[in-house]
Design a protein around this nucleic acid. Structure first.
Lengths: 93, 93
DNA sequence: AAATTTGGTTTATATTATAAACCGCTTTAT
DNA sequence: ATAAAGCGGTTTATAATATAAACCAAATTT
């Protein structure tokens, strides 16, 4: 049985990665809405993904307001693809 | 985003269910070998699956030795199928 | 008959996920 | 101008989970 990457095997982190795989970038507010998560939880999970090198997090200003945008990295893409392959062996897909 | 059933969203429990979905029944020793888990961990996770009603656990004797066999229940099958469907929406399958 | 193995269970510990509390800045209302 | 409320988060405390270590009874081997 293949290992399931524990960084990806978490509902919220997987949801975030799933969104980021289909989009150039997404900001904190958008991710929070789509995943229906609390800000605190999202913040922690984004950190973990960033620390793992799976996403980059960039802070900028839009007018006077801060904006935190996220992008998946190449490493993140590869990890996601691998995770999907590993899962398939569990799900009989 | 769909919920991912937390009882199934666990590597070891998912592995066990995955095995049981493809086989009439499987015993403790076999599951332990296939999943490469420790006995303690397996015991706990089988309990959780049983408590959730996803599997039945039956103890019997083979000669003088005890044997613990597991089978997936109808409820377990349905939960597994649903879990797969939910996951698909995350994985773009 | 002592030591080892088998087939587990129980309990303690480490890890993870989640929510609650907080913080600085901005906008709105008074 | 100032208090109150809102936005965009982060930090920290707590609850839940997974995992391994310790243990146990019966059977087998030496």
């Amino acid at each position: 049985m293949k290992e399931l990457d524990p960084i990806l095997h978490s509902q919220l982190r997987l949801a975030v990665m799933s969104i980021l795989m289909n989009v150039e970038e997404a900001d904190f507010v958008y991710l929070k809405e789509q995943t229906e998560s609390t800000a605190g939880n999202l913040s922690v999970q984004l950190d973990k993904l960033a620390t793992a090198g799976y996403i980059t997090v960039t802070k900028s200003f839009v007018g006077k307001k801060t904006r935190t945008t996220c992008q998946v990295t190449q490493q993140g893409r590869e990890a996601f693809e691998q995770y999907v392959e590993a899962l398939k062996s569990y799900l009989n897909l």
